[in-house]
Simulated assay, not measured.
Amino acid sequence: MLLKLAERGVRVKATGFGRVDFHVPTALMELYEANPQTLMFGTDLPSTRAPKPYSDQDFRLVVETLGEEKAHRVLWQNAAAFYGLIQEQF
């Protein structure tokens, strides 16, 4: 269902990696492939309810999974475009 929503332009916050029961790298790749503009990274801070709180490894996981160019979109460009800070480039 989430992939279908992403394909239609629904934005997805990639966060809370310590609270999920699925393989995060696979989900990141599938969502990015469904729509490169959909993912926006978040830290989930202060992570007070998470079994595994946010760590800098979550940030690195995005880069390692997607590569630098795609990670740039997820870590900055998608959110900046969503909030009107930059013009979306397709």
Rank of each mutant, 00 (worst) to 15 (best):
residue 37 Q to W: 14
residue 62 V to P: 08
residue 56 D to W: 11
residue 21 D to Y: 02
residue 28 L to V: 08
residue 45 L to G: 04
residue 67 G to K: 12
residue 34 A to P: 12
residue 40 M to A: 06
residue 54 Y to W: 15
residue 6 A to E: 05
residue 12 V to C: 04
residue 43 T to F: 04
residue 50 A to P: 04
residue 13 K to Y: 02
residue 11 R to W: 10
residue 90 F to W: 14
residue 87 Q to H: 14
residue 73 R to K: 15
residue 14 A to E: 09
residue 38 T to Y: 01
residue 13 K to I: 02
residue 26 T to Y: 07
residue 22 F to L: 02
residue 36 P to C: 09
residue 33 E to W: 11
residue 40 M to C: 13
residue 77 Q to G: 05
residue 85 L to T: 04
residue 64 E to N: 15
residue 85 L to D: 07
residue 60 R to P: 00
residue 42 G to M: 08
residue 43 T to R: 08
residue 3 L to W: 03
residue 30 E to N: 11
residue 69 E to L: 14
residue 51 P to V: 00
residue 12 V to M: 05
residue 63 V to L: 11
residue 2 L to H: 01
residue 70 K to E: 12
residue 22 F to G: 01
residue 82 F to Q: 12
residue 7 E to P: 05
residue 56 D to G: 08
residue 22 F to N: 02
residue 18 G to K: 00
residue 90 F to K: 15
residue 76 W to N: 13
residue 56 D to C: 07
residue 33 E to T: 09
residue 40 M to V: 12
residue 16 G to N: 01
residue 27 A to Y: 03
residue 72 H to P: 00
residue 41 F to N: 02
residue 25 P to K: 01
residue 83 Y to H: 13
residue 44 D to H: 10
residue 55 S to E: 13
residue 5 L to F: 08
residue 14 A to M: 03
residue 75 L to T: 05
residue 3 L to A: 01
residue 29 M to S: 15
residue 80 A to F: 12
residue 46 P to Q: 11
residue 58 D to W: 14
residue 48 T to R: 12
residue 12 V to T: 04
residue 57 Q to C: 03
residue 3 L to T: 03
residue 41 F to L: 07
residue 9 G to F: 07
residue 70 K to V: 05
residue 8 R to F: 03
residue 16 G to H: 03
residue 74 V to P: 12
residue 29 M to D: 12
residue 24 V to N: 02
residue 58 D to V: 01
residue 9 G to C: 04
residue 31 L to Q: 05
residue 45 L to T: 00
residue 70 K to A: 14
residue 19 R to E: 10
residue 53 P to V: 00
residue 24 V to W: 06
residue 24 V to D: 02
residue 18 G to T: 01
residue 72 H to W: 14
residue 67 G to C: 04
residue 70 K to C: 05
residue 25 P to V: 03
residue 23 H to N: 07
residue 24 V to C: 05
residue 18 G to L: 00
residue 10 V to S: 01
residue 42 G to I: 00
residue 59 F to T: 11
residue 1 M to W: 00
residue 31 L to I: 12
residue 43 T to Y: 04
residue 88 E to T: 08
residue 4 K to L: 01
residue 26 T to V: 07
residue 45 L to M: 13
residue 76 W to S: 15
residue 42 G to S: 07
residue 15 T to Y: 05
residue 55 S to V: 06
residue 42 G to A: 04
residue 15 T to F: 00
residue 64 E to F: 04
residue 68 E to R: 13
residue 80 A to T: 14
residue 30 E to A: 15
residue 5 L to K: 03
residue 58 D to P: 09
residue 69 E to G: 08
residue 50 A to S: 15
residue 49 R to H: 10
residue 88 E to A: 13
residue 28 L to D: 10
residue 86 I to C: 13
residue 68 E to C: 09
residue 49 R to G: 06
residue 65 T to Y: 09
residue 66 L to R: 13
residue 67 G to P: 11
residue 42 G to R: 05
residue 55 S to G: 15
